[in-house]
Nucleic acid binder design. Structure first.
Lengths: 223, 223
DNA sequence: GTCTATATGGGGATAGAC
DNA sequence: GTCTATCCCCATATAGAC
């Protein structure tokens, strides 16, 4: 323990990721993080400026490669179909797979960060929204455009709502908070990353393609 | 201000709901809650036992009527179809509408509580999971059974995952955290409760009905 | 870069007067 | 039921020795 090597920032990031995922940002103290990391309390404020800056660093470390891969997959899919839009499934896989595959690529950091990433969508507060906007703004813009092209007949309001539902399903899957817990392991396996991706993509593609109620006919709200 | 009437517990619940929704549980202090409510700090520990008990009370107050209504709507739909299963759309509406309609029924408590309810699904920690299990355990069990009956051909693992995605989309919609913020109000209106319900139900019904890849054919993971 | 020690403030909870 | 005052603990952040 307590190797004084130069990997202290790494160790802090790993511990912070793990504990933030378990307990949330506000409830996780720097003391707990430094204890878990086996480093001194003051090291956090030396290597990072503050707790808030540490949170941002935790996200940036993982999200930047994930987003690069998302864009690569999206562009590859677009290149395959030329001027036509790629199939919905390819767009959805480009969006979901890089994040979900984190689970397999790291010992346990992947799982922790997935929970974090899922949670940031529902986390309140200012820095959460800043991180979202800063790290995911371009992702949102480019994938929204891709969906719009793939579903040209869909009214903008419906497209927006469906993207909203899609984000919710993805975030919840990343977060890994399973209701019906007696089910997990019994009839389904969250560690089956590729199966999860396949099922998520199929579900979302069908939802995005759902028929739209004729625009003129407004429901009367009573029955 | 500071009316010493017997409605102090009410005032505390209202303030707590509002502030918890805005800032989360851990980051919201009892001092802030009592200040917002215009009551004394000690009143919280007098009327409720502790902060944790206050959180549970906040959820119980709204969730109990919502869940009653969910069961009523589910049973009404089942009564209409006799031994056959109700259409997916009716089940989904029974699950989603009572919660989403909270927005219209209260001045602003509805919006606050919706955010809370959406967030509890991703909130970490012990009491969050306890509340989830205790308040939503029966809801999960009965609606899962309804979905199972409505989709008898769906393998259990796929059914589980689809319910999981469904919960994520619902929670995110309740939480009301809109990505692509330049869209809201521009092309879509979160205050249109019935429109939101209609779109959510259509999206989820299509996702639940998505075709399942033939069981025997396992994808080789390499393209 | 790392550590000890501490400054400074805020948290939940309670005792006891009214 | 309500309030003041306070106990006791823990938080983030920093100063300054090593």
């Amino acid at each position: 323990m307590k190797r004084t090597g130069a990997d202290t920032p790494q160790r802090i990031l790993d511990a912070a990721e793990r504990l933030f995922a378990r307990g949330g940002f506000a409830a996780t103290s720097l003391r707990a993080i430094t204890a878990e990391a086996g480093v001194n309390l003051a090291a956090v404020n030396y290597h990072f400026r503050s707790k808030e800056a540490l949170i941002e660093a935790v996200f940036a470390r993982r999200l930047e490669p994930v987003n690069r891969q998302r864009f690569q997959m999206l562009e590859a899919a677009q290149a395959r179909t030329g001027r036509r839009s790629p199939p919905l499934e390819a767009i959805l896989e480009a969006l979901a797979a890089p994040a979900l595959r984190l689970r397999g690529e790291m010992t346990d950091g992947g799982v922790s960060f997935q929970r974090l990433m899922g949670r940031i969508f529902l986390e309140p507060g200012e820095h959460a929204e800043a991180i979202l906007q800063q790290q995911l703004g371009e992702v949102a813009a480019r994938f929204r455009a891709a969906f719009e092209k793939a579903l040209p007949q869909l009214p903008p309001a419906d497209l927006y709502w469906r993207i909203h539902f899609l984000v919710g399903a993805m975030a919840h899957t990343l977060a890994g908070t399973h209701i019906l817990p007696h089910f997990v392991g019994d009839r389904c396996d969250p560690a089956d990353v590729e199966g999860t991706i396949r099922r998520l993509v199929a579900f979302l593609a069908a939802g995005l393609r759902a028929p739209v109620r004729a625009a003129g006919r407004k429901r009367s709200r009573k029955t």
